[in-house]
Design a protein around this nucleic acid. Structure first.
Lengths: 195, 195
DNA sequence: TTTCTGTATATAAGTTCTTATATATGCAAT
DNA sequence: ATTGCATATATAAGAACTTATATACAGAAA
């Protein structure tokens, strides 16, 4: 459960509510970790029971009370320990590739439409990443935030590299399949690859 | 639930048992979809109830009976329909990037160790992919399997591209951080990037 | 001779994550 | 006026997935 450690990571920087944490997630780690509030609230309250966090209620006049979570010494130790531990590669689940794998069941036009649709999604995501990078770069007011800035930018970097890999592959695949003649796969990429 | 459709995809090619399906998964789609037998068995039996599959028991002398699943017309229709539908990007969960994001909490040596460990994992995976590609290419006995071969090879291609992206990024990041001077991030990549 | 791997089934318990629902208010836009 | 968005909490139900456990035999390796 890395959600726990992601929460500890943000709370190590500053104390906040579940709602605040959700904002931070969506603004900075969304490209490699997402979480719903409905998952975060019970996780936070469990972490409090486990002594990793303390909670303080701040009453507000016009809004529901804020439950502000603060990391404890035990929380910091557990975060630090987890961060330093090596971790294996996550097992991926990419439904789109299931579709491509069984693409033989589809007409040529259908598989091309599928690839082009996915290409536009990856291009849109790439645009968002590049926009975020641009905003980060033009942000000189990050005094005392050098480390946060540096590592955030680093993780954005791998996102951009992976999106570029997807875009390249999708463009090549569309071109490959479009060039295939109508007699099926025989006249296309397959025979080319075998020499 | 794409597991259902992956099962339909394999069963569309030939009838088999849960155990056989597990072998097929591990040999061909593992890099973008994995499943445990304990998840597959109940899923298959549910699919049978839903009329997507039929099941026939084959008794064996020395082993437990084989439950052979066969796709139905309804199953084929549902597979075909799902395959042609566009699908969004999956939300990723990469615990390693959570660690990198909060890398500011670690010593320089610790973060470098983390990156190098991950680099070796990605290199090992890349080696496996290249080995599989080599085996596919040297396999001329795939008569009548051109389409299966073609699309299987295609999905392997994106796996290779993404592994290369990871390897490049990890190598660059290790070099970047190693070159940083001991006064922190100020003398390193951060200032370089700002000009 | 024992241990490990492979064939073949399956359930139970637990974790993680998603989707739907509920409450209550302020503020801005249409 | 009303819709939608933002603030702030939270529960319930269910889907999806992991890990542990169970049975039973064959064949190969140590």
């Amino acid at each position: 459960m890395s959600l726990k450690y992601a929460l500890l990571g943000f709370l190590n920087h500053s104390s906040m509510t579940g709602y605040d944490l959700k904002q931070h997630f969506d603004r900075s780690v969304r490209h490699f970790w997402s979480a719903n509030l409905s998952q975060m609230y019970p996780t936070l309250s469990q972490m409090e029971k486990d002594g990793l966090l303390t909670m303080e209620v701040e009453n507000q006049e016009k809004h529901p009370p804020r439950k502000v979570y603060r990391i404890t010494g035990a929380g910091r130790r557990e975060l630090k320990q987890w961060l330093a531990e090596p971790i294996g590669l996550p097992s991926l689940r990419i439904p789109f590739l299931v579709k491509v794998f069984f693409g033989g069941c589809l007409e040529k036009e259908e598989i091309i439409a599928l690839l082009k649709d996915h290409l536009s999604r990856h291009r849109a995501l790439m645009d968002r990443y590049l926009q975020i990078r641009k905003e980060i770069m033009e942000h000189p007011e990050s005094k005392g935030m050098e480390k946060e800035f540096f590592f955030g930018n680093l993780t954005l970097g791998v996102g951009i590299k992976i999106e570029q890999a997807w875009i390249d592959w999708l463009e090549e695949s569309v071109a490959n399949i479009e060039e295939m003649n109508e007699s099926g796969v025989r006249g296309g990429v397959l025979t080319d690859q075998r020499g």
